[in-house]
């Protein structure tokens, strides 16, 4: 279990989900004549002018608005994503410039499949907890791509979640502790210079997602001496609708604990933002004194688990930026043709 010397918490949070959706049955219409079961109802689709940088900027602006600090007070900006627009050249500097935090700030991009964002969060805890920094902006954001026709195409979606970490006495939710659990498990990967990731089908289940997530959550609860019923809400990485519900059941969480943060049926798998946007949705409805357990999962593989306790500052800050529900309700469905055009799957010659 990892805990900082100085207590650390979230002083601001912000989410972003693109306006567009494609229904899973629209994708099924193209590839299986509509005859396949859909892992979710719909997934979010980034607009033609959106990428990991732009969705990070909006989530970060929302987090800043809730934090009450000025952009130039940030000491680091870290973005976790598997879909950075450049392979070499940081997304972080673009986002930092947009927020107006440059030049005296640390910036870098993180990669660990779907848990790149939570790695940035853990690192931010360390920076603030060690007093090397007062405020760190940690972002998980993705505009993920699945190979046309692949199972991933039904779920790989887009979203961003941003958090400003700071001293616990300024926070709206304190991070009690975190654990990280990693093993070398190649359940899903994308080789350098390849456009689409590949996955090991059922191998992504037991030895990968379930093993890592169950390990991290059990360890964290054990070390904190907690039981599942001690938490108001539980958020588990959500690559589809089924996995987090199955894992929650095995771990002893109820559907009610899971529901507020379970966004994947409506927007798909937002990868680095999946667990973290669930956390934002839970913070949107949490009351002072509520506790939240969050576990990310990243292929390759590993899981970070966190324990949060919400305080009264949530009440005054949550309305300083759009709630997750605003983005969830703002939705315009596109058909497969528009989706293909926007996602760069058309051969333009």
């Amino acid at each position: 279990m990892m805990q900082p010397d100085r207590p650390v918490g979230l002083i601001g949070y912000g989410v972003y989900i693109p306006r567009y959706r494609i229904a899973a049955n629209e994708i099924a219409r193209i590839w299986t004549d509509g005859q396949s079961g859909a892992p979710i109802e719909a997934k979010s689709v980034p607009g033609p002018d959106e990428d990991t940088v732009t969705i990070s900027i909006e989530a970060a602006r929302n987090a800043l608005a809730r934090s009450g600090i000025r952009a130039e007070q940030l000491n680091a900006i870290w973005i976790g994503s598997e879909s950075h627009p450049y392979s070499v050249k940081p997304s972080g500097t673009i986002v930092a410039e947009a927020l107006g935090t440059t030049p005296w700030i640390s910036a870098a991009d993180w990669e660990f499949a779907c848990k790149a964002g939570s790695e940035a969060l853990t690192a931010g805890m360390g920076m603030v907890g060690s007093r090397m920094a007062e405020y760190v902006l940690s972002i998980g954001a993705d505009t993920a791509q699945g190979r046309p026709g692949d199972a991933l195409e039904y779920t790989a979606s887009a979203g961003a979640a941003a958090f400003i970490l700071g001293p616990a006495d300024e926070c709206l939710a304190q991070i009690e502790a975190t654990v990280s659990y990693v093993t070398d498990t190649p359940d899903f990967f994308r080789r350098a210079d390849r456009p689409y990731p590949v996955h090991g089908n059922r191998f992504t289940g037991e030895p990968a997602y379930f093993h890592q997530i169950q390990s991290s959550v059990k360890r964290l609860m054990h070390e904190l001496d907690r039981q599942p019923q001690d938490y108001t809400y539980a958020i588990l990485h959500q690559p589809n609708a089924k996995f987090p519900q199955a894992a929650a059941k095995r771990l002893g969480f109820t559907p009610e604990q899971l529901a507020p943060g379970l966004l994947s049926p409506k927007i798909g798998n937002t990868y680095s933002a999946a667990a973290l946007s669930g956390l934002c949705a839970a913070l949107d409805v949490a009351q002072p004194g509520d506790s939240i357990l969050v576990a990310s999962y990243g292929s390759g593989a590993g899981s970070d688990a966190y324990s949060f306790v919400v305080n009264e500052k949530i009440l005054e800050r949550r309305h300083l930026a759009p709630l997750t529900s605003v983005y969830l309700e703002r939705k315009t469905f596109v058909d497969y043709a528009v989706y293909v055009k926007w996602r760069g799957k058309l051969v333009m010659g």
């Binding site: 959106e50 990428d51 732009t54 947009a98």
Partner: peptide
């Protein structure tokens, strides 16, 4: 205002971001 990708100047070019 939102900050969006204005222009992709090509596979070996920069991405241009700006206000919309």
């Amino acid at each position: 205002m939102v900050t969006r990708r204005l222009k992709d100047t090509g596979e070996d070019g920069v991405l241009v971001y700006g206000y919309k």
